[in-house]
Design a protein around this nucleic acid. Sequence first.
DNA 1: TTTAGGG
DNA 2: CCCTAAA
Length: 627
Amino acid sequence: MEVGAPQDARENKNEENEFEENGSSDPVVYQLVRVEGDGTLVPATEDEVLQFEHFVDEKVDLPSIEDVGRVEDFFANNCMFLKPDLEEGPCKLETTGKLQTQKLDADLEEDRLKPLDDSLDIPSKCTVVHDKQPEKLNTEQGYHNTVHLDNASTETTKSTVLNDSCSVEKEKADACSRHVNDSSTEPSVSGITSSVPDFSILRGEVFLDTLTIRELQEAFRATFGRQTTVKDKLWLKRRITMGLTHSCDVPSSGCVIKDYIVVGKDAKEELPTIEGILKVEVEATSLARDQVLDHANERDTPSSSYYQSEDQQRSSKRLKGISTDNDESLGTLQDEQGTAKRLRKPTKRYIEELSDIETFDSTGKLSSPGKRPAHDEVLLRPRATFQEVDSLTITYPTRKDTFGGFSVHVPYVSRMRRGRPRRNFSSFLDDKPSVECAEVQMAVEMTVEKDGEQGNHVNQAMEVPLMNNAEKNGGHVETADNKEVRTVEANILCRADAKSKTKRSLKRKHHRAWTLSEVLKLVDGVARFGVGKWSEIRRLAFASYSYRTSVDLKDKWRNLIRASQTQLYLEKDGSCLRKSNPSTIPIPPSILLRVKELAEMQPQVGDLAAPMQLNSRAAQGKGSGFL
DNA sequence: TTTAGGG
DNA sequence: CCCTAAA
C-alpha cells in the first residue's frame, strides 16, 4: 500500500486557511478510492468503504504500526476487495486531511500504463494516503518510513511510500516516489531533459486523438516537464488531458483541449469563456476548473466521477460544487463549460447519485456488494457525520463544500451509486438517520432468512448453480461461504452504522446464480400462469425465494429463451462445445425444450391459463425423460 | 406496481 | 442485474 505523506505545509497554506475558515473541527478525513486500470480514481464503493472503514476509524489520529499491519493483513486476506481482476484495479485507501494533500504514486501510474493486462499481475495494490496536520509531520514521517520498510519486504502487497519531501506537483511526486520506491528503474524518466519541451504543441486546441504517440509524448513532456517512455496512447492522452485541465474527469478519448480546458468534441463551439489560462509549467498553481464533461459513454467515464488526483489536489480548494449532470447551479457554473451538458433529463437515479443514503433494495434485503459497482459513493467519515447530516438538507452542489468543513477537495459530487433508486429518497432528507439501526437489524435478519431459505433448499440437490450458455455473466457461483460473507457484511454494516450514521448507498444486488430448481420453478410457473405473469409466478412459485423478484424471473426467462435457442441449436448442430464452467452445470436440454415450447405457444394463445396447464403437462412429461 | 425492453 | 418507460 502506499502511504502518502503530508505535504509541505507551506504548499498547502492556502488550503489550510480555507479549512480554518470553514471551521473544520476535524482535520482528517479519509476517503477511499479505487485506482482503476486506466489510472482514474474512482470513489470507493460502499462495500469497499465498509471494509476499510473500521481501519480508518480506529486510527483517527496517528495510525500505529499495528494498524498498518492490520490494514495490510486485511488487504492480503480480503479477496473480495483485493482480488485483482480485470475489472478492478488496485485499491487505494486515501485519506484526505486538513492539508488535503494527496500523493499519487507515480509508479502506480506507470504500472497502469498497461491497464487491464497488467492489473492482473499486480496482486493487491493498495494505496493509503494519509494526510496529516503539520504538527504531526514528524511523527508521521516515522510512521511512513516504517511502513515503507515493511512494505519493502512484502511481496504480497505492492507497496510504495511517498516521502514527505515530495512536492505537490505530480511531476515531482513522480520523481520522488520513483526515487523512493525503485530508484533503480526507469532512471531516465524522472529527469527533465535538457532540451526545452515544445510547448507550442499545447497551444490552442489540442486534438489529442490526432496526435501520434511521439507527439503525445512531446505533449506530455510539455505538460509535465518530463519525458515519458510510455507508448500507450490512451494513457498519454488521458494524462495530458488531466495535466492540462487539472481535472481527473477526462474522457479517454474524443476530446479536444482548448486553452487547457477540455472541450467536448461536439460542444467545442459552446465553450463559453476561457477562464484562466493555465500555465503548463509545473509551478503553475492556477486552478483548473472542474470540467464537467458530458461524455456519452457514461459507463466508462461517469460524468459524476470527480476523481481525486494530484492535479485536482492542487486545485481542489477551488473545486466548486460539482455538478451532476443536471444540478447546475447556473450562477456558479457560468464560466464553465457547463454548456456541454447532458441532455438527458434528470432522473431519479441521477438525483440520488448525489446522496449517499443507504437503503435496501426493493426486496427489502440488504443489498449486497456488487461484484463490481463501477462507481460508488465515497466514504464519509464518521466524524463528519453530523455535518453530513446537515448537509443532506442542502443542495447538492454545495453539499460538498460543507462536508467536514473541507469537502472542497473531496469531490463528493462524484458520489455515485449503482443500484436501485431509492423510492423514499426524499424522506431521508427529512428524517434523521434514526432508522439506520433498525435497518441494519432488518438487514441481518433478512440475511439470515435468506440463508435459511438457501439451507432449506440445499437438500434438493438441484440447488446447483446453473450455467446458461446464453448467459455471459460468467456464472458466479454461490458458495456455502456466502452465508459467512453476508454475515460479515452485516456486521460491518452494523458497525459502520453504529460508528457513523453515514448512510450507505444501495448496491448492486448480490449475484445469485440460478439453481436448477429455481429454473424448474420458473418454467413451471410460466407453464401454469403464462409468460408475463411474473408477479404471479413470483408470488406463488417463488414464495420461498424472496431474493427473486418478478423482474428477475422475467430476465431469467428471457435468458432461458435465448438459451433454448442457442443451445438447442448448437446441439443440433453437433458442435456443442460450451466452455462450461466446472462449477456450473448447463441447463438440461429438457428444460430448454420446455422453455422453447412455452415461449412459442404462449404468446399466440389468447387464453393462457387453460392451455398452459395442458402444455405444461405435456412438456413436463417430455422433459422428465431427459432428467 | 408491473411489464417489457434495452443496456 | 440494472434502469426506465409505459401501462
